[in-house]
Design a protein around this nucleic acid. Structure first.
Lengths: 168, 168
DNA sequence: TAAGATTGACGCCTCAATCTTG
DNA sequence: CAAGATTGAGGCGTCAATCTTA
């Protein structure tokens, strides 16, 4: 245990936090994704894309805006949109206002799918995140998240707020 | 945890937490991985593997134990060990006590690499997680993490403790 | 020229099938 | 057989290069 003893190492209290939290960072996303895949036959990220579209006016968004909103690269998004197109849940359309943009548009079937899958997702978020925490812990976790977010990317605070208008 | 009658959607307070936290779940691991890749030319997961080995007696571990310790599948681990072998940081050896096991053994160069990379990693954890939080927030985040961990996998509480002896 | 979008190459992860050892 | 480990196929993400539109 004394193999790596840097002057800059973490003290026991810091380690207690970091190890517990690091496990969450690994396990929680995996758990959410597995649940969505099993229960609804759709990946968590795909669901996020469709969820964002479902909340947007006209259920449509420019791909670049959508990417920014959910924190995805354009190339990843392009592939996912292609996949969702094949499933009949999303279609593409060139933006009439400016041909450089491509609109991602949720189809009726896509909207139906999101509507069907949402309760399952919400239930899982409740089960794994909300329910296990006390009200104080929930508030602290929110504040801690915002504080870390500022450290990670000072410009992302706005994006975070944008997402919250979407309904992850 | 079978909730009897949960609302289908989140109320504003719950959403405030979930959106902020979900953003962390996406950004923080990516930020840590990018930093390790840039600064030390090694992925976060690879570092974790070598770090675990560096703490073990004789700097060696059975692959199955190592996988359990850091929460990795055997196939993923096998590939990573192969990669680290090519870099000269790890070598394999059959377990003399039971030939079914394979030992992953950290080489001198591998140990040197971990030792060199550790301060950089710790500094980043401090910068993104520890420093932005108050002491109260750190304690709350730890407790919240443990509570969520129990909900995700009741048996993982022990694993979490095991990792904390390793020095993620 | 710049920004949005797309594509292909490459690497990584998961799953299932397989090999090995006891 | 059972457990540990390895391998190959398939899906996915990133990066860089390219195409398109303004």
């Amino acid at each position: 245990v004394d193999a790596v003893q840097e002057p800059e190492w973490l003290d026991p209290e810091e380690r207690g936090l970091w190890f517990a939290f690091a496990w969450i960072l690994v396990r929680l996303p995996a758990a959410l994704d597995t649940q969505m895949q099993r229960a609804e036959k759709i990946g968590h990220f795909d669901y996020l894309v469709m969820s964002a579209l479902s909340m947007a006016p006209q259920r449509r968004l420019r791909l670049s805006d959508l990417g920014e909103l959910i924190g995805s690269s354009l190339s990843r998004l392009s592939n996912v949109i292609g996949k969702l197109e094949k499933r009949g849940w999303v279609r593409r359309e060139s933006d009439l206002a400016d041909g450089r943009y491509t609109l991602g548009i949720l189809t009726e079937q896509g909207f139906a799918k999101v509507t069907q899958a949402a309760p399952s997702h919400v239930a899982e978020v409740r089960r794994l995140v909300l329910d296990p925490l006390t009200r104080e812990q929930r508030l602290a976790l929110r504040d801690a998240s915002l504080a870390m977010l500022r450290a990670i990317d000072p410009g992302a605070a706005d994006a975070g707020r944008a997402v919250s208008s979407v309904g992850l």
